[in-house]
């Protein structure tokens, strides 16, 4: 692995695979979150399963954490290498003439998502770890819904969520389709696939925004 990751093609391949894995995770996360709008009981049941299942906790969660850390560290490494590769910059660079804003600014949309992950971990992941492993509190399968929606009482938090998911949308609008190109998938099906990735990139973040606004409005 140390050898092939030294090549620019392999770095992009690894970046794409970690991105595709995170997209799959995002879909799973959205599906569970969306149940909080439909039924608190189903949301509690699924959250309890995800929080206590051995395979999810001991095997999938470490893979997910590795995937997230790998994706953002590799993103910063690629950005530094790419800036160095230019050397002296242009006085006049008309990037809008040949490429999208999203594709040229993945590092900034990614940085916003990373900052959002900090808030998200502060809101949910750290309290969960504290509940289960630090304080060793008794398990209550019905606590998840209340613990979740209470976070969306604060307007500032809802605004931060909405802004973050807009940046996630921008990141996915380029990143999801781009990952297929990086793994070598470019053929007669690519146009259809691009349509799907663009729809996904818009619908899923809008869905997350809808969930946050739904719980905020319901608690007014």
């Amino acid at each position: 692995m140390g050898g092939i990751i030294k090549s620019s093609v392999a770095r992009k391949f690894a970046m794409a695979l970690s991105g595709l894995f995170l997209v799959f995770f995002l879909l799973q996360h959205f599906t569970i979150n969306f149940t909080s709008v439909i039924s608190p009981d189903i949301f509690n049941e699924l959250s309890h399963f995800m929080g206590n299942n051995f395979v999810v906790q001991a095997l999938l969660q470490p893979v997910l954490i590795f995937g997230v850390i790998f994706h953002f560290i590799m993103g910063f490494i690629l950005e530094i290498q790419n800036r160095n590769a230019r050397g002296v910059g242009y006085k006049n660079y008309n990037g809008n003439a040949n490429s999208s804003w999203m594709s040229r600014n993945m590092i900034y949309s990614g940085a916003v998502i990373l900052a959002f992950l900090g808030l998200h971990f502060y809101d949910f992941w750290f309290p969960e770890i504290s509940h289960k492993y630090i304080h060793g509190l008794p398990e209550d399968p019905t606590r998840y819904y209340e613990e979740t929606i209470v976070k969306f009482k604060d307007l500032w938090r809802v605004i931060l969520y909405v802004v973050s998911f807009i940046f996630l949308m921008l990141h996915l609008l380029h990143g999801f389709a781009s990952s297929f190109q990086s793994v070598g998938f470019n053929n007669k099906y690519s146009k259809g696939l691009q349509g799907f990735t663009k729809a996904f990139a818009i619908i899923i973040p809008l869905g997350f925004i809808f969930i946050a606004l739904f719980h905020y409005i319901n608690q007014l």
Binding site: S8, H174, Q181
Partner: peptide, 22 residues
């Protein structure tokens, strides 16, 4: 060829598509 390309100090592709357009 990829090894030589990397040794020359070119950057990584991020699929912006600017190259194809220009």
């Amino acid at each position: 060829m990829v090894r030589q390309m990397d040794e020359e100090g070119f950057g990584n592709c991020s699929n912006t598509g600017a190259c194809e357009i220009e």
